[in-house]
Write a protein that binds this DNA or RNA. Structure first.
Length: 583
DNA sequence: ACTAAGACTTGGAAAAAATGCA
DNA sequence: TGCATTTTTTCCAAGTCTTAGT
């Protein structure tokens, strides 16, 4: 298998002559941990420099116009651009912004501007709105110029050479300065994200490559040649002090292989999941508290597809949790609820401050254990006080090579898709099959709690669709009447012409029925999808070979399931999977 | 064993582009 | 053809997990 895939990638991405060499290399690579032999690129594209506002666009403090120094003005424009956003009404956002803004001010500005509430950014805000309006109104030719410039930049900076092949870079533009927008109740929202200069950038490339040149008059922070990592450039961001990277696009060999590997690990879990499950069920009875906690946590991770839940530094980020970091306040126990026994109610904020709310009946043993874990604890205490992700993953590693908590999410997502597709797929029309596929995808998204805010125009969009359906229904009954009439006509005359007319009308009815069905399917799909986000599971959790096989088996064109970008990302799977592929 | 740093995957929102419709 | 709607792409934040350092 290893050989096959290596050569598959080689075949796609390398000239034939290199096939042997590369295959051999790929097998070597896994042992010494190097990710490439040759890497050449042009370095990142920097954010355009700040353009001062025209003199007529004024900032007012306490009702009086005030000319700001360029650095203070730039930061003010960041705020002005967000004026319509809810963020700017939040206390923490305003406080953080004001504090960082003041750091950019001259000493005079600092002494004058002491209260954000006395600042009037509205002219700035209007100016930017007018600008973006003007951009929309640009002629085709003017837009073309912009597009061409973009394309030029992409061609020059958007690709690199990695091991003899030209690869697309994921994010070759450096993030522009602006105000940090965290998600949820983030304590750092509104802080100034500073401008990144060449002096902040570490370049990674191979020694024997043409090194990227920093912009004239500047220097890189460092140029290194580390082939144990996949990134091309990095810098340290000033809000959390974390490192940001420029890496390759998902269509690249290096990402594709890793992705494939991830699903292979999940398939290995499939082989031993029964053993692991009976093991943790046994562990519910352990004499040791830490083992019981580990076993209950693993049960949640497996059954509910919860994330691992690393510890987070308090006050640095929004207060969110995963399985191991659940607190007493996040669960409620109900010995009896409605018709069910031993119900656990989960209510907590997970990744990106997305709420997880679920009520599930659990085994009696799990319930009793939870009661035990809760004893003598305060709401803000850890539910699993003897457990963290490191302990859990160490245990998982012993159960299966390469097993970590997140593999359960991948495994359960993919196996759910496969099962759902088996249950739902019929020999319906293509649109009906696609509805089935989306429903299977939706089951996974629900399992993984991938939610979205309902689109702002959702209601209207549903109404529009309903109107179309009504119209189509009217068309259909009209067409049916005509068919009936044509039949009657044919019965009376029995001639060729009337027979043809019947056929024509029959066809028309059939066509309209199809169109109506398509619309109805679309409406169902959209309604069911109101608060569900399918993208993440499709892109990150579902073994693409399951989808490819399903398409082949049911004669659905792959384009109906994956758009161009997705087909590029999953090229390996599209080439690899046959209709009988089993996850 | 523990912590911090580092590397990489996963995540929804927003912007941009494509498509549909009058 | 111009506008509205839908789909795709971009953006960059926020997780997971590994590695390095002590």
């Amino acid at each position: 298998m290893r050989r096959f895939v290596s050569s598959m990638f080689s075949f796609r991405f390398f000239p034939r002559v290199l096939l042997f060499v590369v295959t051999r290399w790929e097998e070597e690579r896994s042992t010494d941990g190097s990710k490439w032999r040759f890497l050449e690129h042009k370095g990142p594209v920097f954010a355009p420099p700040y353009e001062p506002l025209p003199g007529k666009v004024k900032f007012y403090y306490d009702g009086k116009p005030m000319k700001l120094s360029a650095p203070a003005e730039e930061v003010a424009t960041f705020f002005a651009k967000m004026l319509d956003h809810e963020y700017t009404t939040k206390d923490i956002f305003r406080k953080n912004f004001f504090k960082d803004w003041r750091k950019e001010m001259t000493s005079e500005e600092k002494s004058t501007i002491t209260d954000l509430n006395k600042c009037n950014f509205s002219e700035m805000s209007e100016y930017f709105k007018a600008q973006s309006e003007a951009r929309k109104q640009m002629s085709k030719e003017e837009k073309q110029v912009d597009l061409q410039e973009n394309e030029r930049l992409l061609q020059e900076y958007g690709f690199c050479i990695m091991d003899n092949h030209k690869e697309r870079i994921g994010n070759f533009r450096i993030e522009p300065p602006g105000l940090f927008r965290g998600r949820g109740d983030h304590p750092k929202m509104g802080m100034l994200k500073r401008r990144i200069r060449p002096e902040d950038i570490i370049i990674n490339c191979s020694k024997d490559s043409k090194h990227p040149k920093p912009p004239p008059g500047t220097k890189w922070k460092e140029v290194r040649h580390d082939n144990k990592v996949t990134w091309l450039a990095s810098w340290t961001e000033n809000i959390q002090g974390s490192i940001k990277y420029i890496m390759l696009n998902p269509s690249s060999r290096i990402k594709g292989e890793k992705d494939w590997q991830k699903y292979e690990t999940a398939r290995r879990l499939k082989k031993c999941v029964d053993r692991i499950r009976s093991q943790y069920r046994d562990d519910w009875k352990s004499k040791e508290m830490r083992i019981r906690q580990r076993a209950v946590a693993l049960y949640f991770i497996d059954k509910l597809a919860l994330r691992a839940g690393n510890e987070k530094e308090e006050g640095e980020t929004a207060d969110t949790v995963g399985c191991c970091s659940l607190r007493v306040e996040h669960i409620k126990l109900y010995p009896k609820m409605d018709e069910q026994e031993y119900v656990v109610e989960f209510d907590f904020l997970g990744k990106d401050s997305i709420r997880y709310y679920n009520k599930i009946p659990v085994e009696k043993r799990v319930f009793k254990n939870l009661q035990l874990f809760l004893e003598n604890k305060q709401p803000e205490d850890d539910l699993f006080d003897r457990l963290n992700t490191s302990i859990l993953n160490k245990h998982l590693q012993e159960l299966m090579d390469g097993l970590t908590a997140k593999v359960f999410r991948t495994y359960n997502a993919s196996i759910t898709l496969q099962q759902q597709l088996k249950e739902l797929s019929s020999d319906d029309s293509v649109p009906a099959k696609i509805l089935s596929y989306n429903r299977a995808n939706r089951a996974v998204a629900i399992l993984c709690n991938h939610q979205r805010a309902p689109p702002k125009t959702f209601e209207k969009s549903m109404q529009n669709l309903q109107t179309k359906i009504d119209e189509k229904q009217n068309q259909l009954s009209a067409a049916r009447k005509q068919l009936k009439a044509a039949k009657a006509d044919h019965k009376a005359s029995h001639d060729e012409k009337s027979k043809k007319a019947v056929e024509v009308k029959r066809k028309a009815v059939q066509r309209i029925e199809e169109q109506l069905m398509k619309l109805q399917v679309q409406a169902t799909d959209r309604e069911e999808n109101k608060q569900i986000a399918l993208g993440t599971s499709k892109l990150n959790y579902l073994d693409p070979r399951i989808s490819v096989a399903w398409c082949k088996k049911y004669g659905v064109p792959i384009e109906k399931i994956y758009n161009k970008t997705q087909r590029e990302k999953f090229a390996w799977a599209i080439d690899m999977a046959e209709k009988d592929y089993e996850f």
